[in-house]
Nucleic acid binder design. Structure first.
Length: 253
DNA sequence: GGCCAGGCCCCAG
DNA sequence: CTGGGGCATGGC
């Protein structure tokens, strides 16, 4: 099977990021304060000119090796890999990931994206007509619970406020072992094991993470009822992402 | 018009 | 420490 370098459609809309928009074959998001536009055809070109994008799209990680190993595990993992060729784990801003996944609880990806973009429009910086950066901690500090609830954040409003309050702990996460890092994140209200795992994976590229959401619980119960993430080591996070994508694809069809 | 969504908090037992 | 109800909101 031909190895796909990076598949934008799958990577950007597999539920790891809530900041991307699609118009035709063009994908755009505000990254690092700038509006980025990119198409499947010009990924390599863009990344070769821009080290930030090269890192953001995780172009140098061992996806070929990981796909090969997970593919060797047979059904259903081999099928899951085949259905998500070219899926990369993005290197996102931990702060954005933290708020994004606080929004994610008891919610659906469509509405998470809408809520995430609402925060940008309300508290972020406009970088182009109608396009806003995600607000920094300082920008979000202006928010009150009443405002956030009026914006539609619902019961997550106080969680966002607590995350702002404790946002400095994000700086210490890279220094910590996985479990310690998870415990630190879980001191934030609204952050449990699942949300914390997502922050460690999508914000800090901790590939040993294995976020267990409702879909993953179904997938594990169905295919690996007596196993843990250990069987996918050292590619647990990627296995999780492939399975997550796979079960959702099956459900839709 | 209910149902449900990439969970977590809280409080019974 | 484990289990289950409740939670704000809107897309479907």
């Amino acid at each position: 099977m031909e190895h796909v370098v990076l598949d934008l459609q799958t990577t950007l809309f597999c539920g790891q990021s809530f900041g991307w928009l699609q118009e035709g074959d063009t994908y755009s998001a505000v990254l690092d304060g700038k509006l980025v536009r990119i198409r499947q055809e010009n990924i390599l070109e863009k990344c070769s000119q821009d080290l930030f994008l090269q890192h953001y799209f995780d172009m140098d990680w061992e996806y070929l090796k990981a796909e090969s190993y997970l593919g060797s595990l047979g059904y259903p993992m081999a099928d899951a890999v085949a259905h998500a060729q070219g899926l990369h784990i993005l290197n996102q801003d931990p702060w954005e990931v933290l708020i994004g996944f606080i929004l994610s609880q008891n919610n659906n990806i469509k509405r998470i994206t809408q809520m995430f973009q609402k925060l940008g429009k309300e508290y972020g910086t406009q970088v182009e007509s109608g396009r806003y950066s995600f607000p920094t901690q300082k920008q979000l500090q202006k928010a009150t619970e009443t405002e956030l609830r009026a914006l539609g954040m619902g019961f997550r409003a106080p969680y966002i406020l607590d995350a702002i309050q404790k946002s400095s702990l994000l700086d210490t996460i890279p220094l910590l072992e996985f479990e310690d890092a998870l415990l630190q994140l879980m001191t934030i209200r609204g952050v449990g094991r699942k949300v914390g795992s997502c922050v460690l994976l999508y914000g800090y590229h901790r590939m040993e993470a294995f976020p267990m959401d409702t879909w993953m619980k179904k997938a594990m119960a169905r295919w690996y009822p007596h196993e843990t993430s250990e069987i996918f080591s050292p590619y647990a996070a990627l296995a999780q992402q492939y399975l997550f994508h796979y079960v959702r694809t099956l459900e839709e069809s």
